[in-house]
């Protein structure tokens, strides 16, 4: 592992502190200083702060490997996954804030889980087999290998919330389903096991809280930690929904 010229810098982490459960608390920025270590990620830095400096600092990490989507936060003004953000790629002053839009739990921790569950319920983000039952003893139904890869590509979403946090429409429409929701609709629309038709999908996202709410600012596409093809998926879905909407 190459030694970086930046190692052993003094980092200053400016974290937004606020506990909404405390009646008298007001939001403020708190600065923590610590020495940078080789290979240090924001997960390592924040864990060290909690262990050695401030045991009350709230944040969320689970996998610390960039796959579970727990640690979305604003890192120097942009939404991203803290666990896989390496400090050497950042200036010595690092500002951290919770993702906007989601319910704040405290400090850097937001309730993305609750919002994602609501979105899934609303958009019914599961395969609708329409009563087709499967005999588990029998050979599975074949699926085109390329199509399976395409579905997997869209299935890689980790529901971190970065797309919604960066979304202009979400600022104005609290019920907007976000790129995460639209991508899921594109995923199930692509999946031949889901028997829903465009008419069904239109019912779910054919309005301003769905695909027509998107203003194509596409910050979602730029910040998605999994590099999902959100731009093309939203455009494609919109075209299909326009066709569906103009049918009648």
């Amino acid at each position: 592992m190459a030694e970086t010229s930046n190692s052993h810098r003094k980092l200053r982490i400016h974290a937004l502190r606020y506990n909404p459960a405390k009646a008298d608390d007001t939001p403020r920025i708190q600065t923590y200083e610590l020495e940078e270590a080789p290979g240090m990620t924001l997960f390592i830095a924040l864990s060290e702060i909690r262990e050695k400096q401030d045991p009350s600092l709230q944040f969320d990490f689970v996998c610390r490997a960039g796959i579970c989507g727990s640690c979305g936060m604003m890192i120097n003004g942009l939404p991203g996954l803290a666990c896989r953000t390496v400090t050497k790629d950042l200036p010595a002053d690092i500002s951290l804030a919770p993702l906007p839009f989601f319910e704040l739990i405290g400090d850097l921790s937001v309730n993305t889980g609750k919002w994602m569950r609501g979105m899934s319920e609303k958009l019914e983000t599961w395969v609708h087999s329409m009563g087709q039952s499967t005999d588990l003893k029998r050979i599975e139904e074949a699926m085109d290998p390329a199509l399976a890869e395409e579905v997997y590509e869209l299935d890689r979403c980790i529901e971190c919330g970065c797309c919604v946090a960066s979304c202009g429409t979400a600022r104005m429409r609290k019920d907007f389903v976000g790129a995460v929701g639209l991508n899921k609709m594109a995923r199930f629309r692509l999946d031949p096991r889901d028997k829903r038709t465009d008419a069904d999908f239109y019912e779910l996202v054919g309005d301003d809280n769905g695909v027509f709410g998107c203003m194509s600012l596409l910050a979602c596409h730029d910040v998605c930690p999994k590099n999902l093809p959100l731009q093309t998926q939203i455009a494609f879905l919109r075209r299909k929904m326009v066709l569906q909407g103009t049918k009648g």
Binding site: V62, A65, I67, C68, G69, S70, G113, M116, I158
Partner: peptide, 10 residues
Amino acid sequence: VPAKRSHSKA
């Protein structure tokens, strides 16, 4: 944690 963030994910 939210169910989808469980370690099964890894």
